[in-house]
């Protein structure tokens, strides 16, 4: 058992093996429920027509694109401060999921924008911010891939994630300053009696839950893969020595 140098990965593997089927199942159910509800059982918007159905993918994906980065930020902090290996690996595991969500948000936004704004792409603040976020994800993933030593890679990507977060926030404000934009205001607002009808909100909430659960399930699976990869490395190193 000495190969599991740290007690945490082992415990993580046990716990996640127990949790994973539940999360996966729930993610599947809520996703199917939310998306079929949104797709088949909601009416058309009086201005947007049936394109309003895209919101059930677009908004949850955008939400997860940002939350994935936040999760990576928290994991990077934990790694830098407490040196839990699982934390660094979870951050690594979350990045491809985050980049996919960013891509989905960008693509669905472009497809929606074509008939609505008359253009595939506008240099609107939110679109631009997401493009920048996409670049940050690419850089982060590329840095992980480029560095051989896993601990060094974890250190460097964590530092990049911290600095990147500051600059991503900065870009957000800079981009707002640069162009006022034509994007919809916040689609979900807590202020009563405006924005969206309940018929759209409920399936949207379900879809959002589905995306969150999907994210959790994927990150768990990917982290397990990363932990196994780490163990494989250790075993191979020992095999070479022995």
């Amino acid at each position: 058992m000495s190969i599991w140098e740290y007690a945490n990965p082992k415990k993580f593997m046990q716990t996640s093996a127990w949790v994973l089927p539940w999360v996966t199942g729930l993610a599947f159910v809520t996703l199917v429920l939310g998306l079929t509800w949104g797709f088949f059982f909601t009416g058309d918007d009086y201005r947007q027509g049936s394109t309003v159905k895209i919101i059930f993918i677009h908004v949850p994906a955008a939400l997860m694109a940002i939350n994935a980065w936040l999760m990576m930020l928290v994991c990077s902090l934990i790694w830098l401060i407490r040196r839990h290996h699982v934390s660094a690996l979870a951050a690594k595991a979350a990045a491809p999921v985050g980049v996919t969500m960013t891509l989905i948000a960008l693509f669905t936004g472009a497809i929606w924008g074509q008939p609505m704004w008359g253009t595939w792409w506008a240099w609107d603040p939110r679109l631009t911010s997401f493009l920048i976020l996409f670049l940050f994800y690419l850089g982060y993933i590329a840095l992980w891939e480029a560095i051989e030593d896993p601990d060094t890679a974890a250190d460097l990507t964590s530092v990049l994630c911290l600095v990147g977060s500051v600059f991503a926030l900065l870009s957000r404000y800079a981009v707002n300053f640069w162009n006022q934009g034509l994007h919809q205001g916040a689609s979900l607002s807590l202020a009563p009696g405006e924005r969206m009808a309940m018929t759209f909100k409920l399936p949207l909430y379900v879809a959002m839950t589905g995306f969150v659960l999907l994210f959790v399930a994927l990150v768990l699976i990917r982290t397990r893969t990363e932990i196994r990869a780490r163990r494989l490395r250790a075993l191979e190193a020992r095999g070479r020595m022995g």
Partner: peptide, 20 residues
Amino acid sequence: LLLSLLVLPLYIPTLIFGAD
């Protein structure tokens, strides 16, 4: 190449405010 990819998004705020 990696360096350019990492630095590019970090440069954006500076570019925006400077050029503006």
